[in-house]
Design a protein around this nucleic acid. Structure first.
Lengths: 251, 251
DNA sequence: TCAGCTTTGTGCGTCAGCGAACATAAAATA
DNA sequence: TATTTTATGTTCGCTGACGCACAAAGCTGA
């Protein structure tokens, strides 16, 4: 749902396409072609960008929101496959050629994103310029994140996974304050709500986080990293490596 | 290790690049450019194609072998991320731009593959012809498999995962006979060997498989599919969808 | 201010999978 | 044939996570 003119003005004061790492890294000519067609959209908590099997109409470039890619099983249980924030885009299947995926994309942390009609994205992609390289490198980062999620689900405790999840969220927000109930975290991790309550209680007792009724504040991030499994760091290092030498067109 | 001339002759009687689905689906002009540079290599059980972080020299197109993409943790424990057989290729990171990945590629079922110097692959890829579309579609299939592995690791029992694993292997071999110890399966699944022994015992008792000392014969595949979790079918359906309308150049 | 809802806390019993130790059996090798 | 190695079978105690039930505490709105 695009914003009304007045809202749009208000929002654009704070929002710029270049807040998204990929849009920011795109070469100037790509930016000139794409930016006029970007549409700032509000991303409220729980908004579903696409369901499993949906043909995607848009790609979304988050600025300050976080989107979860979630697989929902036949019995309704779910598991988060990966998360996307300002560093990426939602809808890689559009240029990968599948047009849809088996997962659901849902807003996990409210904010804004710029969306682009899928066809425009494909047109630009098919010019085979630098955007193609950029998109492919990001896709590999996404691949890495999914792979590590598989590993983490296999071998690590809820406590460790909660730490990792908090770090992933923290990296995609500017502050240390998350709006998120334990119930929702449990859905993302694919575990019981009670399990999250207990793990969060332990973190609070250790002075790592502070939380109440849907609000979590991270007090001691270094400790959080220390308590997390290696999965967080592995993905971060690889993502940095893949996206670090991007041409930058900061304005 | 390329084959000697005499071996090569012997092997090529049975091996053809077109046994690989992607090579087979490549347009005629691509085949003409690439096939002369394909090198048939033997893929013995346990051969490591690349380690985590290795810059890849070659991409591998399996014909009748199976390659596992495995993540090895700091403590030595491991987890299979995905498998690649005749339907795919090993080394997507070469054209995705990363040149390396965080996982290890290791031969899980002996056989043959055609390998191609990475640079030639990249050159062809950068012509931006149909091969690019083909590779991207396959990459999305790989992405789907990884995502489902994450889900499976989260929610399903060893029994179910063993069924899924056997089905994945079966699909990539022509017969119903696997050469594989329970110890190796355990490494792939990232579980204890004893867990696999018990699960395999239950399958044998139900007349689904028959095994002894490194050999497994699947007797009742329908039952195996029935006992498996949904993860197998989801990935199969999506992979078929992604790769089904490929242009075919069968000779 | 009271009722109703949402969120978090806690205490069960149960069970799958773990780690370790050890037993058996089939192949390989001498 | 005897010996060693490899693969599989089995047991036992432990623990993390589950499912369920219910309690407590913090918001919200009449």
């Amino acid at each position: 749902m695009p914003l009304q003119a007045s809202q749009q003005h208000c929002a654009t004061v704070k929002n710029q396409p270049t807040q998204n790492l990929l849009l920011n890294a795109a070469p100037a000519d790509v930016q000139q072609r794409l930016f006029p067609h970007l549409e700032l959209v509000e991303m409220p908590l729980g908004k579903v960008l696409y369901e499993s099997g949906d043909v995607m109409r848009y790609v979304y470039f988050p600025t300050n929101c976080i989107v979860s890619l979630l697989y929902v099983m036949e019995n309704g249980a779910s598991a988060e496959i990966s998360v996307v924030g300002y560093e990426g885009l939602v809808g890689v299947a559009l240029f990968m050629g599948g047009e849809s995926t088996t997962s659901r994309a849902i807003v996990q942390s409210a904010g804004f994103a710029y969306r682009l009609l899928g066809q425009r994205m494909k047109d630009e992609f098919n010019r085979h310029g630098e955007l193609l390289q950029l998109m492919l490198r990001y896709s590999q980062a996404l691949l890495t994140q999914m792979a590590q999620t598989a590993v983490c689900n296999r071998h690590h405790s809820i406590d460790q996974q909660l730490c990792r999840w908090l770090l992933l969220s923290l990296d995609r927000l500017k502050d240390n304050h998350l709006v998120m109930t334990q119930e929702l975290i449990a859905n993302m991790l694919g575990v019981r709500r009670e399990g999250v309550t207990e793990a969060a209680g332990r973190l609070q007792k250790q002075g790592v986080i502070d939380y109440s009724r849907g609000h979590i504040v991270v007090i001691n991030r270094p400790k959080l990293e220390q308590l997390s499994c290696e999965c967080y760091e592995v993905v971060k290092a690889e993502t940095d490596r893949l996206l670090q030498y991007l041409p930058s067109n900061n304005t």
